[in-house]
Design a protein around this nucleic acid. Structure first.
Length: 369
RNA sequence: UCCGCGGUAGCUCAAUGGUAGAGCAAUCGGCUGUUAACCGAUCGGUUGUAGGUUCGAAUCCUACCCGCGGAG
């Protein structure tokens, strides 16, 4: 076992737990928020900035990196950490979500998905075997099983079919991972699907637990089902997963979503929200979102968030930040991405402190978001 | 002074006799395992001015105003 999950404290009034995960490239605290570095880069930010923001672990993506530069190139350049210059734990997503989100012109072919590359239109054939090989070459600390992510409100028959596929693929991933990685340097997480259907979630969770993964993810949420149904699904599904293994809610989310999931026993999160919204001029702050394009900030000399300790808030006025977006200067997206990541990491610090203090139920998401 | 070209949204320009449009700018909104420094909405016009021809004119005619180029 190359990944060690240490539970340090539990909150008595919720299911929240405080922990630490140890990997070959270092450790990170849980509950954890992972910045998304799809193509081997968290857009606009250097590894130094990521460390400044408090990011302990970041993501890469199988699909994007297999297209460019190719997993063999990443391997030959020393693996994802050395390639990207991020000195810390990393996780690669399996490409399952891209199959879902790039769903135009795709079809299933035995245990593969065939779809068109968004770059040159060429046919891409991806399945659990390929995903495991690619993720092994990328060499992140944690690899994810290749899953089939059904859309929100998937009809019952199609959902059941999708679950069969996810479960079967998880088994193939488990076997391939063992074969490819005899020294077991990478951890492998399984992904529980099932939409908002409790029976399917249960069936998928039980099947994957029997395969003994290093951690378990909840996938297929925040895909349009709505906040309440998402929380209800987490409420049901998270406790199905083994206490001793990390639980990862994929693709989530807003600070309030993270809080509600932590209270239900989730340990890891990732989301593009801080970086994508940061590039698009939306800053998360302790008093609510600030849309920096808005004209009301033209002459605003206040810092973005007086309670924030990031470089952006210590040195620049809202008026200047607005100016950067108004004229399209690349520093704008960089600074707000940095700020938003710092905001999310400070939120995770607050969450972890509350669990340590056994005050988990008292937490309120900052800025009502 | 003459000749030519032009004047349409804040800017750059479409529309050649038949419902004046686009891009950018401006204003606002959206973004949840990144096809996204992206996407969407809104705002925006007495078509240089004044006449005329026509059922109908940004479009054709006349005069004038302004700009650019050329000639002298």
């Amino acid at each position: 076992m190359t990944l060690k999950f240490e539970i340090i404290a539990k909150d008595s009034s919720t299911k929240a737990r405080l922990g630490r995960i140890h990997t070959p490239h270092g450790s990170f605290d849980t509950p954890a928020f992972m910045a998304v570095g799809t193509r081997g880069s968290v857009k606009g930010l250097t590894p130094d900035m990521l460390h400044q923001a408090g990011c302990q672990i970041i993501l890469g993506n199988t699909y994007h990196l297999m297209l460019r530069p190719g997993s063999e190139v990443v391997r030959d350049l020393g693996g994802l950490q050395q390639f990207s210059g991020f000195n810390g734990p990393m996780l690669t997503d399996s490409g399952g979500f891209q199959v879902f989100s790039l769903s135009d012109l795709r079809h299933f072919d035995c245990d593969h998905v065939v779809f068109k590359s968004h770059i040159d239109g060429s046919a891409i054939r991806l399945g659990p075997v390929e995903s495991m090989k690619i993720q092994h070459e990328l060499g992140a600390d944690i690899a994810m099983a290749f899953d089939d992510c059904p859309p929100a409100d998937c009809p019952p028959e199609r959902l059941a079919e999708s679950m069969d596929r996810t479960i079967r693929w998880a088994g193939i991933c488990r076997e391939e991972h063992e074969k490819l990685d005899p020294e077991n340097r990478q951890a492998l997480f399984g992904i529980v699907q099932g939409g908002t259907n409790p029976d399917q979630r249960l069936r998928c969770a039980e099947s994957l637990i029997a395969m003994d993964f290093d951690g378990y993810a909840l996938g297929g949420l925040a895909v349009g089902e709505g906040h309440d149904r998402m929380i209800a699904t987490i409420d049901h599904a998270a406790p199905l997963l083994p206490e001793s293994r990390p639980r990862y809610l994929m693709g989530v989310g807003y600070p309030v979503d993270i809080l509600e999931a932590v209270k239900r026993g989730v340990d890891m999160f990732d989301c593009v929200l801080p970086t994508r919204n940061g590039r698009n001029a939306l800053a998360f702050t302790s008093t609510g979102p600030i849309r920096l394009r808005n004209s009301q900030y033209i002459r605003d000399m206040n810092p973005l968030d007086a309670s924030c300790d990031c470089m952006c808030c210590r040195q620049f006025s809202r008026g200047y930040l607005r100016h950067l977006f108004a004229v399209g200067e690349m520093l704008g997206p960089t600074l707000i991405s940095l700020h938003n990541l710092r905001f999310f990491q400070r939120w995770m610090l607050d969450i972890r402190q509350a669990i340590r203090d056994n005050h988990g139920s008292m937490l309120v998401a900052p800025g009502s978001m």
